[in-house]
Design a protein around this nucleic acid. Structure first.
Length: 569
RNA sequence: CGGGGUGUAGCGCAGCUUGGUAGCGCGUCUGGUUUGGGACCAGAAAGUCGCAGGUUCGAAUCCUGUCACCCCGACCA
């Protein structure tokens, strides 16, 4: 491709709307343009990257024994009513109505369609396992789209669904996908980790997420260096801590005056009570039932753990009016002593002695409160977010924390959808049984953004070779100089003949402009054809990720580039 | 939806407090000089000041409403 006819409108300045680096660079380098919040056009360079990502995904999916198909984006309401999700999915689903007033959704996911399809066409154990996938746009009316492609309302996703005879079959399909996903991100040369995840609203009992590591990631992951444990913070288990070294004697409770002190920090500052000698009390409403949660003062509640334990549909923090009605004090003065609602206590609190808490009376706290003596727990369970330094639940070594971007997620679904949509098959002895399903997603467009997030410098993007829009850019320093342009064109043609994807920057621009653009759009290899080296029949070859430029004889430049692309140099 | 912020030329911004009919840098176009890391000179085009009402002799500026976008929180590939 010649740069003079390539559509890549680059920007010198950072658009004000972009906050994170991948969003800024994809805009500046002319890869994407916004149409509305969370909805983007992909320009030619982006399309090439997306196609490369898709092709790696396709190859690995096909290798794992699955087949590609394509399902409709517009999905009839009746299917969603059958699965029960028309009412459950909520505002995140785009809904529309046709001229006959029939309801449809823009597909946020495809369990309903594929299960219906497979139910209609697959009836025998002989046809299983069946793994089907597609790559297409998905629609989710996110509460808050953000960070460019990172959280869009329209995005490109690969979604695969597995159908097996039984749970052993599902385990096998799951393992295949687990391995295929590792292969995919490894081939893209992304720095990623696989973490245990909560399976959330989709249902099912086992789930892993594939996280590209980046400081801007929206997820916190905890991992162990002594063993291979890694989990999303939502999932990471906290062990019962060791008994404290010197066990304190229980002291009598006393009520102290704490006027104007509402936060844990107020008590630290005002009375010198350290955070780990305080508990915080949170009041929640779970499907209309009030409850309280007790955590050590410096910990955060993990709502997912609470929700999973309670097995409830809706969980909200109680509002201050409700809190006041129940215990006669505001948020800052809550405490477990004397509370008349079920109290769920985090494991760690069982190791605390003589702690302080709100007295359920504005302006007062208790000190020397103890679990068991002063209040009783409805349940003692793991409720807090794990943090860096916590013991690994597998080997007890201290955990480390990192930020990650979730680019893939695999789930075991079980029979949730095959039951709801009646997708059954006949076993060898004629029994009818529901198929056992799994689903497996990759955010294709998000992966592109994540790759940029992880591979950039002050000059722009540094595409990993396997997903770069072009491998090489050839720049004649001065395209008006006949011999430079001719030499550059010659190299360009020879590279193309070797199936190397190459841009010839034949634009009548100053060298600086062309260098800046080449760096910005992140082409991995740059060949500069300049007057000095040309006299020696040489050109300059520079890798985007390296500081050094090397002089290469024109005769061998194609071989050199070929070796760089194959990762041999 | 709650909290915060922003809408003025393709991009980045000033002007708004104190109303007087729109400006700067970059980009674009023309001509010339340049040509190894976002050149220089001269000239030019380009704006319903987000939209709708209102106040006023007069509104980018004041008031009301509304829309869009961005950031923080609850969601997820």
């Amino acid at each position: 491709m010649k740069a003079s006819s390539l559509f890549f409108p680059t920007l010198r300045e950072v658009p004000a709307e972009a906050e994170i680096i991948s969003h800024q660079l994809l805009l500046r380098a002319g890869f994407i343009r916004k149409t509305s919040a969370g909805v983007y056009s992909y320009l030619p360079l982006a399309v090439r990257v997306l196609q490369k990502i898709e092709n790696i995904v396709r190859e690995e999916m096909d290798r794992a024994g699955s087949q590609e198909l394509l399902m409709p984006i517009i999905q009839p309401k009746e299917l969603w009513e059958k699965s029960g999700r028309w009412s459950v999915y909520g505002d995140e689903m785009f809904r529309l109505t046709d001229r006959h007033n029939r309801g449809f959704s823009l597909g946020p996911t495809h369990e309903e369609i594929i299960t219906t399809l497979v139910d209609a066409e697959v009836h025998s154990y002989r046809d299983l396992p069946l793994l089907l996938y597609q790559i297409q746009n998905k629609y989710r009316d996110e509460i808050r789209p953000r960070f460019g492609l990172m959280r869009g309302r329209e995005f490109i996703m690969k979604d695969l669904y597995s159908f097996d005879q039984d749970y052993e079959g599902l385990d096998l399909s799951y393992q295949k996908m687990y391995a295929a996903y590792r292969a995919i991100y490894t081939r893209m040369k992304l720095n990623f980790r696989v973490v245990e995840a909560d399976s959330g609203a989709i249902g099912g009992n086992e789930s892993h997420e594939y996280m590209v590591l980046a400081d801007s990631g929206e997820c916190t992951i905890l991992y162990c260096e002594s063993c291979d444990y890694a989990a999303n913070v939502e999932k990471a288990e906290c062990l019962m801590p060791e008994e404290s070294v010197a066990e304190e004697e229980l002291k009598p409770v006393s009520k102290i005056s704490t006027p104007g002190m509402h936060t844990i920090q107020d008590l630290v500052n005002g009375l010198g009570i350290p955070e780990h000698k305080q508990v915080k009390t949170l009041m929640y409403i779970a499907d209309d039932n009030l409850l309280a949660v007790i955590l050590r003062g410096d910990r955060e509640l993990n709502e997912i753990k609470l929700k999973n334990y309670l097995n409830c549909n809706n969980l909200f923090m109680a509002d201050e009016a409700t809190v006041r009605e129940i215990c006669g004090a505001g948020f800052g003065s809550l405490g477990p002593r004397g509370l008349k609602i079920p109290i769920y206590v985090d494991l760690e609190v069982t190791r605390m002695r003589n702690f302080s808490c709100g007295a359920n009376e504005d302006g007062y706290h208790y000190i020397n409160v103890n679990l068991g003596r002063d209040f009783t727990a409805e349940a003692i369970i793991d409720l807090r977010n794990a943090v860096e330094g916590d013991a690994c639940p597998v080997c007890s070594a201290p955990l480390h924390a990192l930020r990650g971007i979730e680019v893939g997620h695999i789930f075991k679904l079980g029979t949730k959808y095959s039951d709801a949509l009646n997708a059954c098959y006949r076993t060898a002895n004629g029994e009818e049984r529901p198929m056992v399903m799994g689903c497996y997603g990759i955010g294709i467009s998000r992966t592109m953004a994540a790759a940029v997030e992880q591979n950039n410098d002050n000059d722009g993007i540094i595409w990993p070779m396997p997903i770069a829009p072009y491998h090489v850019i050839v720049i004649p320093v001065n395209a008006k100089k006949e011999e430079q342009l001719r030499a550059a064109e010659d190299i360009y043609e020879k590279l193309k003949a070797r199936d190397i994807e190459v841009i010839l920057d034949d634009r009548d621009e100053r060298a600086g402009v062309k260098f800046k653009d080449a760096d910005l759009i992140g082409i991995p290899v740059k060949i500069t054809v300049g007057p000095k080296s040309l006299q020696e029949n040489q050109v300059e070859v520079k890798k985007r990720w390296s500081e050094t430029t090397e002089l290469v004889a024109i005769d061998s430049v194609v071989d050199t580039v070929y070796a760089i692309i194959r990762g041999e140099m």
